[in-house]
Design a protein around this nucleic acid. Structure first.
Lengths: 125, 125, 125, 125
DNA sequence: GTGGTCTAGACCACC
DNA sequence: GTGGTCTAGACCACA
């Protein structure tokens, strides 16, 4: 399912995050064309205007380029993508650490808990 | 600052999370009285009714008990608190892992990045 | 326990009901003296003033008579007591039937449920 | 009249009881939509916030479900409703019996008085 | 037009 | 001074 949104945050923001994630993960490779707005909107179950709004912001950030009458393309600037990836990773890490230490769990225990969790996940497979 | 809220999510939900965090971290120890509604509301810069709504839900969950005309107390049930702590930790971990792997970073790299981050933090001190 | 009050209704009203019930049930027989205010108040865990207020209303209704310097007595008018008993019974019956029919249960089923309940109660003994 | 409340008990509690009664009696059938908050509030002569509070508790109990921007619906779980009906009936019966026996009337007489009352009611028709 | 949230301000019971 | 309730009125997201 692609159409599960946090009902409490603006959908277009969540769409931006999703597309960024796809670019960074390589699902949308650098330089490649992405699906048309309508298709993306359909797949996520949102209004095309909402999807449009999300993509426009990504264009402003330089992550997407638009070729009129052709479509949208992921930037070919792989450094930019790598930078975004590192930035997103740091954001997630910082947030995680902030949250977990607020519970009274120190960094060492956090790593241990995370390692355990990953171990358990593998077992499930 | 205590009064910085994510504008996109209900304040009372965020207040619930904050109080839970304080209980779990031991800032509000088991069996101890917590500050009065009005004071907490003031400290967070919200209306007393909003704080009331948050605390009512914590009472429903058994994390707080109310003694009318006296005040609110953290539950003395330390097992319940420990359970909550584990639950919150797992939630944060699961989320972190979901986010980081969505970027195309595998579990091993996640641990490495986290360890690096912690190392860098210590250096800053 | 005599000191369990519905926190939502005035205590003196609940005291009136209790004393009426004792008169009607014969616990306080007609013409007999009842315990002094302070003792009653103590037994119910309420302030003597509150008990006083309740007894004053019963005196107004003719159910109690006061002999200064001696104490309070239940009325000797057994007809009045019988009338009160019938009246209280009808009140309870009417209320019960109103409540139970509001649930979509007809009078016949109400009698059946009541009979069942009594049967189950006896078994427990 | 829908707007007559016991001044001694919280209105929202009484609203909860009323809605429960309507669900149990079938006035609000399982799976069906109930009137909007504002309408219900109006009909009962209370503030919409007060009605909201009552309905929120019923939602927590699983008796109502909410579809945002659409409305509230009675649960489709007929077993849950049946269970509630039995529970409410038992509560009313227990209370009635407690009250009537406190008057010095035994269970057998209670049934007789109830039967008489019902007989008299029918005659009135 | 639906439910949901929030504020401001008032009043109450209890101790 | 504590928690609890209630109102009036406003604003928001969503479809």
């Amino acid at each position: 399912m692609d159409n599960a949104f946090d009902a409490q945050r603006p959908i277009y923001i969540q769409l931006i995050e999703r597309v960024k994630t796809r670019i960074v993960s390589g699902e949308y490779p650098p330089g490649e064309q992405i699906p048309p707005v309508r298709e993306l909107a359909d797949a996520s179950g949102v209004n095309p205007n909402t999807m449009q709004k999300a993509l426009a912001e990504l264009e402003r950030d330089g992550l997407l380029t638009v070729q009129r009458t052709v479509g949208r393309f992921v930037t070919g600037d792989e450094d930019l993508i790598a930078k975004l990836k590192a930035e997103l990773a740091q954001t997630h890490i910082a947030r995680f650490l902030r949250e977990i230490t607020a519970l009274g769990i120190d960094a060492g225990d956090a790593i241990r808990l995370l390692t355990d969790y990953i171990g358990r996940q593998k077992e499930e497979i």
